[in-house]
């Protein structure tokens, strides 16, 4: 058997085992369900309010936006933090000590992350349908749009997550990435339309994938008329493709270089040094 094929196959298996491990772990399950529950609660209470200028439920507008945000988060930040943590605990060094182990590791991670991201979308979407009205869930083209936005979103955010994870050496610095992302969520019109924001702020938001993922998801699940209250009054699918595609290209070009550099620098003494530092942090 070709070693690369064997490693990809082992990587797929790795993803499956990690999925099984994470879905049987109480702490992990809590981490998946708690934010979902919180978001659903928020949408529940927002269902009566309306999107300004329309009679459409603000809760129903928030649902697809939150789905987009979840994808961006799951793709970028969860992967980044996993890379940082697993570099610290020696998982990556183990992969490096195994022939083609890094390839297997990455394949496993991609499968794990994308499945978790899609599952999180699902557990958010299904309960919300019971109390939110006006979503286009019986429409085939809606599901098609949802699918391509989700897949493109993952391709745009996962490699960037890998780049971030590879560049951050100390888990404590993860917060430095988390915070700006929180700010970006506020900018990106996830919970409230940003039409009222100054133009330069709108511009900043539109550089990053979160805005476009939210918009793409809204375009899939909201009635066409709702496009009128978006920036430019349209769903802007081409622009969505363009921006997310640009992030995907950037990530796919950068990720192999940065990951290779990261892998090259791994060694037992580096892991030991991190362990030492982590012990001091705890103790």
């Amino acid at each position: 058997m070709n070693p690369t094929v064997a490693a990809v196959r082992a990587g797929v298996q790795r993803g499956v085992i990690e999925l099984r491990n994470t879905f049987t772990n109480a702490q992990d399950l809590w981490n998946y369900f708690f934010p979902t529950a919180a978001l659903l609660t928020a949408m529940f209470f927002m269902r009566g309010s309306t999107v300004p200028g329309t009679s459409f439920s603000l809760g129903a507008r928030t649902l697809p936006s939150a789905l987009g945000m979840g994808l961006a988060f799951g793709g970028m930040l969860v992967l980044a933090s996993q890379l940082v943590i697993e570099r610290e605990d020696g998982t990556l060094l183990r992969a490096k000590a195994t022939p083609n182990g890094m390839l297997g590791y990455l394949v496993g991670k991609i499968i794990l992350m994308s499945t978790v991201a899609l599952m999180s979308m699902f557990i958010q979407l299904v309960p919300a349908l019971f109390f939110l009205d006006g979503l286009r869930v019986t429409n085939a083209s809606a599901w098609f749009t949802l699918l391509w936005v989700a897949v493109l979103g993952l391709v745009a955010t996962l490699p960037m997550g890998a780049v971030l994870g590879a560049l951050i050496e100390n888990p404590r610095n993860l917060g430095l990435v988390m915070l700006p992302n929180m700010g970006l969520i506020a900018l990106s019109g996830i919970f409230y339309p940003i039409n009222g924001y100054p133009g330069w702020l709108q511009g900043v938001a539109q550089v990053f994938p979160i805005y476009w993922l939210g918009l793409g998801m809204r375009s899939a699940l909201l009635p066409d008329g709702m496009a009128a209250v978006e920036l430019d009054g349209s769903w802007r699918h081409l622009e969505t493709l363009g921006v997310l595609g640009a992030w995907a290209v950037l990530g796919l070009v950068l990720a192999p270089v940065v990951l290779r550099r990261m892998a090259r620098r791994e060694s037992g003494s580096r892991v030991a040094a991190r362990r030492e530092r982590a012990m001091q942090r705890v103790g």
Partner: peptide
């Protein structure tokens, strides 16, 4: 083969 000093990697496995 490299025997690494593991710490807590693959804990859920």
């Amino acid at each position: 083969g490299v025997v690494l000093q593991s710490w807590r990697d693959h804990g859920k496995w």
